[in-house]
């Protein structure tokens, strides 16, 4: 047992903390709190604040250089994005990511901020609560836009992730439900049968990790890059 009873004979009087009988060692040490306090602050800053992250950086860059540098995706030698960060896409022949609430500085007036979806320099969410009128207006507008751009009937229920803003504003994924619904739009724009697009979506769908963790999902950048390599029928080519 972790009991250092020290054999001190108690006199029945309860004492708290230091007593006069504690001995000289503690009293002399009592004066010396300044040095350990100051040294510990600087020393632990160096060890845990610089040593630990720098050693981690060194090892990580040897073992996993691509991930350590941000999982950048290259196409024809150019960086087109990161595999784990979403990016804004509005072209009708490509798949669109979830709504994003990130903002950026107004190029015309640096003192103002404006909506700038998928601004990876400033992650952000709507932070609107469940009874917010603003949220309801936003979602209603997104629902009707989603229906019209995908040619859906007015009573088709829209997948929730397609009309709600993600937490980071940089969500790289959409749900398979939200990937399947616009498949027809992608097929039409590319002049290929819808089955071709559905097949690409299937191949790009990530299952639950280890079959258990998280949700099945489709990485939008991966899907769009895969789609761009689908041969386009001449009649539909721009």
């Amino acid at each position: 047992m972790n009991d250092t009873n020290k054999g001190a004979v108690r006199d029945g009087v309860r004492t708290h903390g230091l007593t006069t009988g504690e001995g000289e060692r503690n009293r002399s040490a009592q004066a010396g709190l300044t040095r350990p306090v100051l040294v510990s602050a600087v020393l632990f800053m160096l060890v845990t604040g610089l040593g630990y992250p720098l050693v981690t950086t060194g090892i990580a860059q040897v073992l996993f250089p691509a991930q350590a540098a941000g999982s950048l995706v290259l196409k024809d030698g150019k960086t087109v994005g990161s595999a784990v960060i979403g990016q804004n896409v509005t072209r009708p022949d490509l798949f669109h990511p979830r709504p994003s609430a990130t903002t950026g500085t107004d190029p015309n007036d640096p003192s103002q901020s404006v909506d700038q979806p998928y601004n990876a320099a400033s992650s952000g969410a709507s932070n609107l609560g469940p009874t917010s009128r603003k949220l309801m207006d936003q979602v209603a507008a997104r629902v009707s836009a989603y229906r019209s751009e995908n040619g859906l009937a007015a009573d088709v229920a829209v997948p929730v992730d397609a009309v709600t803003a993600s937490a980071s504003g940089l969500d790289p994924d959409i749900s398979p439900a939200n990937a399947m619904m616009p498949a027809g739009r992608g097929a039409g724009a590319r002049g290929v049968p819808v089955e071709t697009i559905v097949e690409v979506i299937r191949r790009q769908t990530t299952d639950r990790q280890f079959g258990a963790l998280g949700e099945p999902r489709v990485n939008v950048l991966g899907l769009n890059l895969a789609l761009e390599s689908v041969p386009v029928r001449q009649s539909a080519a721009k």
Binding site: V139, D155, V156, P159, V163, R217
Partner: peptide, 20 residues
């Protein structure tokens, strides 16, 4: 008109401010 039902194709639920 938002589909929040969970299915094999989506988690559903309240996805505002959540990640897929």
């Amino acid at each position: 008109g938002v589909d929040q039902q969970d299915s094999v194709l989506q988690s559903g639920g309240n996805m505002e401010g959540k990640e897929t």
